[in-house]
């Protein structure tokens, strides 16, 4: 396994997801580009329905069969995911790319002990004995802060609280020492008091084990604290991507600024600052979508916003807007 640090671990270009519906085709994800390097944390934010979960499932190859996936490139460390066979995808899933879902209450199989499920995660990919796998399971349960780890192995999911279950899910994702973890709102379903603990744990462990992470969250406070990179999604597009400090320090897209205006600035951002609500409606993505999808809500929309929207900025910090400065000067901010 070559660990080339100059090349991205995951490089996505032009990811497009179409869902045929009775009323027409839903263009749920429309040409997404991003790069993720080893050990980096990319936070994807965006309101409900913007396509965050679909994007992560597309990387995992776990989309529903009716969803059509296209991409110019989806390269994971030299493997082109769009051309990978089912077998190749299965070998990657859980081993080199792990996923943590939102619902800890239902994402563990109720019929098996957590020990069985942890051991399975390792033995699906490594030919190790059950005892070795069991030892690894205990080690990871301890790592995710579960006391009396060995005695927990025989317990069933229903015997654990939501927070404990999500710790188990995290331990399960780490069993094979993945290079990439995709966490789709891993704490949304938990008690507010536990959310911060679990997220801290996830971030600390990924840093400690040098795992890259795509973290999908609604919590901008979290993003400000943990992200190396930020991707802002709106109506199936990444309208702005860049290093966290830049996106927070100099947000270019009017939607990003709208989100950030609702909460204090980075560094000072409070815990649990939810995405602000911007008035207006999201256009339907069924049928042909033209121009900037944000123009129904954008304070700076002009006629040109209904046409082709250019990609602005440099490769590292990009945004989509007809204004070269994302209308910053119009808002009286330095361009």
């Amino acid at each position: 396994m070559s660990k080339d640090m100059t090349k991205p671990l995951l490089s996505v270009r032009g990811l497009t997801l179409d869902i045929p519906l009775a009323r027409g085709t839903l263009h749920a994800v429309r040409g997404i580009d991003f790069d993720l390097y080893r050990g980096e944390t990319l936070c994807i934010v965006g309101e409900s329905g913007s396509g965050k979960s679909l994007t992560s499932l597309a990387v995992m190859g776990l989309l529903d069969k009716n969803i059509q996936r296209r991409a110019e490139r989806m390269d994971f460390d030299g493997t082109e995911l769009t051309r990978a066979s089912n077998r190749q995808m299965r070998a990657l899933r859980g081993d080199r790319i792990a996923m943590i879902f939102q619902e800890p209450m239902t994402s563990l199989n109720p019929a098996y002990t957590i020990g069985d499920q942890l051991i399975e995660a390792l033995r699906l990919h490594r030919s190790v004995s059950r005892d070795t796998a069991r030892a690894r399971a205990v080690e990871l349960l301890e790592k995710v802060g579960i006391s009396a780890a060995a005695s927990r192995l025989g317990q069933y999911p229903h015997q654990l609280s939501g927070g404990l279950r999500q710790r188990v899910v995290i331990a399960m994702a780490l069993m094979c020492e993945p290079e990439l973890i995709i966490a789709d709102e891993p704490t949304t379903a938990l008690d507010v008091t536990i959310q911060a603990q679990i997220l801290r744990l996830l971030v600390d462990l990924t840093k400690e084990m040098d795992v890259a992470m795509i973290l999908i969250t609604h919590d901008l406070g979290v993003v400000a604290r943990v992200a190396d990179k930020v991707g802002v999604m709106y109506a199936g597009e990444l309208v702005e991507t860049g290093p966290a400090a830049e996106v927070f320090g100099k947000p270019m897209h009017p939607y990003t600024r709208g989100l950030l205006r609702c909460i204090p600035q980075p560094g000072m951002t409070e815990r649990g600052g939810e995405l602000g609500t911007i008035p207006g409606i999201v256009p339907s993505l069924i049928g042909a979508v033209q121009g900037c999808a944000f123009r129904t809500r954008c304070p700076h929309a002009t006629e040109a916003c209904g046409g082709e929207i250019p990609v602005r900025g440099e490769q590292s910090h990009r945004f989509l807007c007809v204004y070269a400065d994302g209308a910053r000067s119009v808002e009286g901010e330095p361009a």
Partner: peptide, 26 residues
């Protein structure tokens, strides 16, 4: 359609294992 089946797939379990060990058992 349940979440734990998606989890099983995300772990890299094959279809047969997903169907019989994880789904049918429940």
């Amino acid at each position: 359609n349940s979440d734990y089946i998606r989890t099983a797939r995300a772990k890299g379990a094959g279809e047969g294992r997903v169907l019989f060990k994880h789904a049918l058992r429940n």
